[in-house]
Nucleic acid binder design. Structure first.
Lengths: 356, 356
DNA sequence: TTGTACGCGTTATCAT
DNA sequence: ATGATAACGCGTACAA
């Protein structure tokens, strides 16, 4: 008769050895054996709010710790259809201009147990193929780069929840978090006009940018209402160099400096400001007022103290996370646009009139 | 007798209807039916370099397009044990100080078909739990935040390839990409000393930062070699405000300004510079030389034109991607440290002597 | 509360 | 070149 039977409950070491031999990963099944329970019991222990007795929970957790077990998100994603991963589709420039935004978004989503997957695109170019976005089973997407109509349509066709961030789209109802560009532009014009500025110019993003168009519209409309001449507009790429080039172009075309230059973001405003002071020898705000848009950290540096419009980045990030989390949770309902207002930062690069 | 049999090959519309009814996703199996081939044939069509006849490939791709089929990365990850996802573990500050780095890393990895998953941590705090890092089946990690010894050890225990970025670790051989802090610091000291500076101070990161320690060491050693007094060192948080505070503290403790202040990064250098000029009325570089470390975009802005040490960000990002991709491909081999040298940017905030 | 059995969607192995 | 079949690791009805 045989008398040596294998041990009924293998030790932790046995299991580890087996796993090593088979070059596998530690699975919930291994933990189950180690804890002397079924695999589904292990699964339940890692699901918040499942019904497990205190005793089994303890044994499972002990075994899991000893085996260094961690649930496999890929396998989980396969049947829950949730990956806890969210795409951030944005141009490289976004990181450069509002690193704070990236940090805030990351924080807000991690608070909700979700992580950001980066889909950066060079400059402001529209992303080429989104196929990678579809492959990874992302729960949703933050779209901060201008996508084409068909690309946006594909989000809906694939039922992937998404929120546009500081991006607007015509002829389409989509979820979006944005900052009121028209209103901000109007406010700035009013304040500048009240202080006596008459000849305006603008340095803003490419003509294709919807946000830039809105700012242009806000400025033009408000100037018209005040009976002032329309602004001279030049386009740039949203960076420091564009601000410098923009100012040179404006001065060249006018033959002199305007009273005020409204820039589409802080980076361009600072480029404009530096060029005015250090290259053209223009006193700011003595001979020329310069304003920005964003409220980036550098705008507050002592050398600049830029007069600008601050966007409530933290609130916008939170709104984005709230919105996307909501869409993911419930399957998408109706569309919503959450519009935030920028606040005037009264720096020292523009003479401003009294608050409207 | 029955005479109505269901159609042998369902149309695309039939399949779509079925999928919709069952609320499923489009699977390779659906495509197989639509194309009249087996499921494994479909799978092969989406695997580069698999052996498929031109005819079947065409039919499969056609069917896939009509059904809007996309391979499910979660399912794939389950068998291949590759997710094409890489963790970026970094403090928020990283994004603020080198947004360019983030963009470059993202670019380099996307060139290799991999995406970055963000694990940001507030400030420079060490990440608390890395459990989420283990759960998602990441292929590797870029570690740019100081982790504890046990945390690093866990990477090895879990056989997760990782590369330290601008981070060093004592008593441990790890893969790392970094910039030679000691050498850079020595170079800067030599150049400043050659120009006649005698009394040095430093504003650098927290005492716990290994990189800051190396810079301190480099500065102290070189000064000693030159027979000059050791520097007065104050600590900051790697941000603009720290530079401002650091300068005030130095002046308070010395009773006057030193000849030169070597800062641990550009943000602190600019904070120091602004405070010197605008708050303390010190002429830079007339009465005081200020140098930075990084070569961030803002350092080149006209108002600053900072004298600094530029890190080859692009090369470092590429090296990181190369290294991690290599580790992932081959299962980790021996450890390597790729050390890059910073180059002096002769700005206008310090008087420098001739090149050593 | 616990265990059994099946499905999630793919890749890999092995015949053919 | 192609198709059947077995993993991959987990969640979840369902039965007990």
């Amino acid at each position: 008769m045989t008398h040596a039977t294998p041990p009924l409950s293998p030790t932790i070491a046995d299991i580890k050895a087996l796993i090593h031999r088979e070059a596998r990963r530690v699975t919930s099944y291994d933990v189950a054996i180690a804890a002397g329970v079924s695999q589904s019991a292990v699964s339940r222990c890692f699901k918040p709010g499942a019904s497990v007795s205190k005793a089994t929970y303890a044994r499972v957790m002990q075994a899991a710790a000893e085996l260094a077990y961690t649930p496999n998100a890929a396998a989980r994603s396969l049947n829950t259809r949730r990956s806890n991963l969210v795409a951030l589709i944005a141009p490289d420039l976004l990181h450069q201009q509002s690193p704070e935004l990236l940090a805030e978004l990351s924080r807000q989503f991690s608070l909700r147990g979700m992580r950001l997957v980066l889909f950066s695109q060079p400059r402001e170019a529209a992303p080429g193929s989104l196929s990678e976005v579809w492959e990874h089973q992302l729960d949703g997407a933050i779209v901060a780069a201008s996508l084409s109509e068909p690309q946006l349509a594909e989000f809906e066709r694939r039922a992937l929840p998404f929120v546009l961030f500081n991006l607007s789209v015509r002829d389409k109802n989509v979820n979006a978090v944005l900052c009121d560009q028209v209103g901000a532009a109007r406010t700035m014009v009013a304040r500048l006009a009240a202080a006596g500025h008459k000849r305006f110019a603008m340095i803003d993003g490419p003509a294709g940018s919807a946000m830039a168009q809105q700012r242009r519209r806000g400025v033009a409309e408000r100037l018209a209402e005040l009976g002032l001449a329309p602004p001279l507009c030049v386009s740039g790429e949203h960076d420091y160099a564009s601000g410098a080039r923009g100012l040179r172009e404006i001065v060249a075309r006018l033959g002199h400096a305007p009273d005020a230059i409204i820039c589409g973001n802080d980076a361009m405003a600072i480029g404009c400001l530096d060029t005015a002071r250090h290259e053209l020898g223009l006193a700011v705000p003595g001979q020329l007022s310069v304003t920005g848009f964003d409220g980036m950290a550098q705008a507050g540096w002592l050398s600049y103290n830029l007069t600008t419009l601050r966007q409530p980045v933290r609130q916008m990030a939170q709104a984005t996370a709230d919105m996307l989390a909501g869409l993911i949770g419930t399957g998408n309902a109706g569309c919503e646009r959450r519009v935030f207002s920028a606040s005037v930062v009264e720096g020292a690069t523009a003479r401003l009139g009294p608050t409207a």
